[in-house]
Write a protein that binds this DNA or RNA. Structure first.
Length: 601
DNA sequence: GTCGCTTGCCAC
DNA sequence: AAACGTGGCAAGCGAC
């Protein structure tokens, strides 16, 4: 594939429209590439300036305001695939302008790029330079300069670099498609199908959004910011330092006779939470408290107050290709990392409680139980671990009983948590020293627990060792270390020399894939319109009260699954509430009572 | 003023 | 032999 013999056209007359029609009808095409250039990135505020259609040889650009009928006509007549790079973005812009590209005809080369290699930039130019023609990203200098000078909306359409590069993008997309498609079909067709489809589900989630109690958020934000300002004033008056300046605070504390031993990644003196908690000094306590409230106020509450729409709804972006493992990420703001309820952080509950149900709605939460642990048991095919999942009762109690051959172990037994921690440490591929440090226990305890764990669940160690071997093998024979996730079929690459991370990537990748397939099932079952937030192993819905019992039923049907990882059962739990921070386990009668007694908003 | 890097911290 | 994985975001700080 290359960019020799490429023809680019600007449709700016009826004659050119006729030429385009002739090209369109000249041969049957399985697919067309499409794209558009807009005045900005926000489909709600910005508009399309240029529309583009192309195949591997020819690209056609046209001023949208005058010739959008060309696109409209082709969308009606073309029955093959519509290929875009980040296709949903362009599809949404075009949809807002009245041209609806059918969802079932869309293919996305950006999704393919991510599946083939999520470590590489998925930007069109980068992908095309790598896989189509090294010149793809080169000669864009004139255009970049013009855009910088005139803004995205100010470059004249007739400006040759503008329309020709726009037209070229469809050719790049087309050639990228022809390159990526066979690879994706060979390596991970199922993963592609799921990734391509799930974008449409999360796009609806973005549109639906989450309701915010703005007054409550604002009130608490002001309170916290005032407190932070007070602490700062006090700190400056008392010690001559701002509590946000680590360098300054360290100096003051050193002068007070304290010594520091922990270092940051680059070797500087560390002043993180762990260090501060070990210091008995009023300034240390003030810095800790201020950090906590500052974080809550600026990272979370500020967005609630400033970024809701006119209806009090916040619409974060969901990036289905967020992590290289296939996990999704979220931004503006990220609702996947709101602090959980905790004794030590009372402000944390407030952050979650700002997200409330719509009027006459109920928030429904459904999360998988220990999904990564179940995937580990499945990948390792460890009979004892699988048995612990198939038996009644708490999984980690079952694990601890199996390890210590002691059926009197209950949920409050510290051995249960010890085994649980070790299980997650295995998933993260953590070493013994790190575990000891994190848990604050003697190294020997970790070593002993690990020995007991490994002898009871030998499949886990075999699985992890084998994965490392596969990584090294693939590095020798394919140039890069990777292993394939048996659930999604996707390759997971790692940094050379860090093959121990591959087992984590497979586990996390399988969990992400499983989760996405479930989002698709929920959408197909009609729940798409109420889903709002994906949190890795949990989905949060905002459901009209008259639909709630049905929705809960569907969730239980879909999210509990004895087939997909057989013999390991996948289980989930449903909770409900009217404020995120106050959810409780699902109970139909109690919920109905609470709705009747007016606890709903 | 903006940009990039570092540090720290929230989640799963 | 051992190796804590994936993200987003804010503030401080020096460089431009």
């Amino acid at each position: 594939m290359s960019l020799d013999d490429v023809e680019l056209h600007l449709i700016d007359s009826l004659d050119e429209v006729a030429n385009f029609q002739q090209w369109f009808e000249s041969e049957p095409r399985d697919y067309l590439a499409f794209d558009c250039e807009s005045t900005g990135l926000n489909p709600r505020k910005d508009h399309i300036r240029l529309g583009q259609i192309g195949d591997r040889h020819e690209g056609w650009a046209f001023e949208w305001a005058r010739w959008s009928g060309v696109m409209q006509d082709v969308v009606k007549r073309h029955t093959g695939r519509w290929v875009g790079h980040n296709a949903l973005f362009d599809r949404e812009f075009m949809g807002n302008a009245g041209v609806q590209v059918p969802a079932h005809q869309i293919d996305d080369t950006r999704v393919m790029s991510h599946i083939i290699d999520p470590w590489m930039s998925t930007a069109l130019k980068k992908q095309a330079a790598r896989h189509v023609d090294a010149r793809a990203g080169n000669a864009q200098h004139d255009l970049d300069e013009a855009i910088q000078r005139l803004g995205w909306g100010g470059v004249p359409i007739e400006f040759e670099p503008y329309w020709s590069y726009a037209a070229l993008d469809t050719v790049l997309t087309a050639q990228l498609y022809e390159h990526h498609w066979p690879i994706v079909q060979e390596q991970a067709p199922k993963a592609y199908e799921v990734e391509n489809a799930v974008q449409f589900v999360t796009r609806n989630m973005e549109r639906y959004g989450a309701r915010v109690d703005v007054a409550y958020a604002q009130e608490n934000r002001v309170k916290f910011e005032e407190y932070c300002a007070q602490v700062e004033k006090w700190s400056v008056a008392e010690y001559g330092v701002k509590p946000g300046s680590n360098v300054g605070v360290i100096k003051v504390l050193q002068e007070a006779g304290l010594s520091f031993s922990k270092a940051t990644a680059s070797g500087a003196v560390s002043l993180d939470k762990e260090v501060l908690e070990g210091i008995d000094h009023p300034l240390a306590r003030a810095v800790l408290q201020r950090r906590q409230l500052q974080k809550v106020a600026s990272t979370y509450l500020r967005h609630y107050a400033e970024e809701v729409d006119v209806d009090g709804i916040i619409h974060p972006s969901i990036n289905t290709l967020g992590a290289r493992t296939g996990r999704m990420s979220m931004s503006d703001p990220n609702l996947q990392n709101l602090p959980r309820k905790s004794e030590r952080n009372r402000a944390a509950t407030i952050v979650r409680n700002c997200i409330v149900a719509r009027p006459r709605h109920t928030q429904i939460f459904c999360d998988f139980s220990q999904v990564e642990m179940r995937i580990l048991a499945w990948l390792a095919n460890d009979v004892n671990m699988i048995e612990a999942f198939r038996s009644e009762g708490d999984f980690f109690v079952n694990l601890a009983r199996a390890v210590y051959l002691d059926d009197t172990i209950e949920k409050n037994n510290p051995l249960r948590d010890r085994i649980k921690n070790l299980g997650y440490a295995k998933i993260y591929a953590a070493g013994a020293a790190k575990q000891a440090q994190t848990a604050g226990v003697p190294l020997q305890q970790i070593i002993d627990t690990t020995r007991a764990f490994d002898s009871r669940f030998p499949g886990v160690k075999v699985f992890q060792d084998l994965t490392v071997q596969t990584g090294i093998h693939n590095k020798m024979f394919h140039g890069r270390p990777f292993d394939v996730c048996p659930l999604s079929g996707r390759r997971h690459y790692c940094e050379p020399g860090k093959e121990y991370t591959l087992s984590n990537f497979k586990i996390q990748g399988a969990a992400a894939f499983l989760y996405k397939t479930k989002l698709l099932e929920l959408d197909a079952a009609g729940l798409g319109e109420w889903m709002m937030i994906p949190v890795h192993d949990e989905v949060i819905l905002d459901v009209p009260n008259d639909q709630v019992p049905d929705v809960v039923h569907v969730l239980q049907q879909v999210m509990n699954d004895n087939e997909i990882l057989a013999p390991v059962p996948i289980e989930s739990e449903v909770s409900y509430g009217w404020r995120w921070g106050e959810k409780r386990n699902w109970d139909l009668d109690r919920w109905a009572d609470e709705v009747k007694s007016g606890q709903a908003t």
